[in-house]
Design a protein around this nucleic acid. Sequence first.
DNA 1: CTGAAAGCGCTTACAG
DNA 2: CTGAAAGCGCTTACAG
Lengths: 330, 330
Amino acid sequence: MKPKIEDVAKVAGVSPTTVSRVLNDRGYISGKTKDKVYAAMEEINYVPNDLARSLYNKRSYLIGVIVPSTGNPFFGELVAYIESICDEKGYKVLLCNSLHEADKEKKYWEMLRRNQVDGVIVVTYNRGLVDKEQQFPAVAIDHYLSEHIHVVSSDNFQGGELASRELLETGCKKIIHINGDANLETPANNRQYAYERVMKEAGRTPETYHVVSDAAFLESNIGTIQQLFEEHPDVDGIFASDDLLAIRTLQYAEHLGYKVPEDLKIVGYDGTSLIRSLYPNLTTIIQPIYQIADDAVQTLIQEIDNTSDDRKEKTFPVSLWKGETTGSFT
Amino acid sequence: MKPKIEDVAKVAGVSPTTVSRVLNDRGYISGKTKDKVYAAMEEINYVPNDLARSLYNKRSYLIGVIVPSTGNPFFGELVAYIESICDEKGYKVLLCNSLHEADKEKKYWEMLRRNQVDGVIVVTYNRGLVDKEQQFPAVAIDHYLSEHIHVVSSDNFQGGELASRELLETGCKKIIHINGDANLETPANNRQYAYERVMKEAGRTPETYHVVSDAAFLESNIGTIQQLFEEHPDVDGIFASDDLLAIRTLQYAEHLGYKVPEDLKIVGYDGTSLIRSLYPNLTTIIQPIYQIADDAVQTLIQEIDNTSDDRKEKTFPVSLWKGETTGSFT
DNA sequence: CTGAAAGCGCTTACAG
DNA sequence: CTGAAAGCGCTTACAG
């Protein structure tokens, strides 16, 4: 049997109340008693039961984190940061990989409620999850969920602009955009709007191809990329809405015989540490993942500590990582 | 206030006992009563409190997962699989990123105990964590932890052999091995032993360089790689103990003017979906990540359901992914 | 088929 | 400075 507070009390020759007080450093306790209690805890290898504590305190220090999949490097890094920051602040993370399935998200949401999490950080592209009254504090990353849920994101519009302008400025004549699943309401939508706007302002005709990805965004339909090159062999600039897509496009283009950046320039999106380390040549838009994670956790904890009514919305600027895929090889 | 079982009981006009019975589908209850109870739960938007349940049942359906960092694609994928499989089986995952720090691991281990997890799946390269009596069911991935803890891994020795032989068979004269941190007791050690054995059997002199990595294995000291090429400009085969290392080596080699695979052949290790998708050209050893995850979860749950005394040790075979970095360009 | 009571391990007013 | 008692939300023998 796991030792409980009562066992410690017996060994230390005090009451359970006193043990609890020592544990929580609450009220006045003589140094001697404290020592006795600590010794007793040590002796029987006692560890408090957080379930029982949480039950009484109505505070679990548990935070639910819902992402599509940690298998995708963007979410893998995001979750690693979120967890580390939570740990620093005394919170624990209950991890949920939704795989973009709306019903999984729904089930996870309820699971988190049952487990009395203090709050939730969620990356979801399915609306309408948060029906009814707001259940508990939540922060959405990169997506508007409801009028009660805070959102923290990086500036997707700015990112789209930066990427599009980079291609314009490096002399591309025919710039095409590749985006993810058109049915998903992702932050990438704003990247597309920005692209369209920049194109129009420059007197160009925007054109976007949509690629269907799997849940982890790991594989993506190469068919669409093929189609792009068949329909527009004269393309000389591509803005892909994420780095994996950009790299796949790059590979396919080289396979077709295009030289990058001479014949074709490419800009990706996300700029995770991993991709920057593996493909330092790829020009991309860097999202400040750590800042997003940090702000999401901070905002959530603030909300947990004192529920306020005003929804917060924070947006962090992105930056351009200039690699050789848009470099002018002279 | 969150509704509790008592509130449901009042609305339904029955006792809390009955509500609990309906909830757990236990004992005989008339259809009518059931309906009334369900209706009441629906009406007040009731969700059971799993903390209270777990407290009573001494079963939390919580599993702790400790990995270095989900930011590393290998662990990101592993964790994604583990979590999905756990979810399927009704378990929830408490995520811990140890960042390879022994004292963080220790703290996490205690945190998991406090939270009454039913078991733990751990990837750690620090020994001596599991002192005292075994606290609860645990499965270690890729590493022997104690005589009570199951271990599941892929065949690292076989992987090292496959990689080394591949280089031998593709005609390399001078084959060097790059491994991770020499101070960490990782599964990569066995890859190195296999390399050394194969080299000796072929009458070669094995030579291994050690690279110091950061916690997430994302960055690694390029200095060591530089040194390798300075000391052995005639190297024509490199076996790197993970893919990220392999890719960095590849990049550095190309930067130095080596042509891969003509002048230099490279084999990596891990073969995550991500890397295979991003660098399909890289010859690598594929670890069966899904199988490892699946077996780890299964073994753990089995252990939770009926603690047995015999430690299980399972090893899955790896396979060679033949890319162009060892291809013979003719 | 259904209810009252005790208990899971902890904490916190309330006394002393 | 310390203890006895009630309660967090649930479940399960035990009665009926």
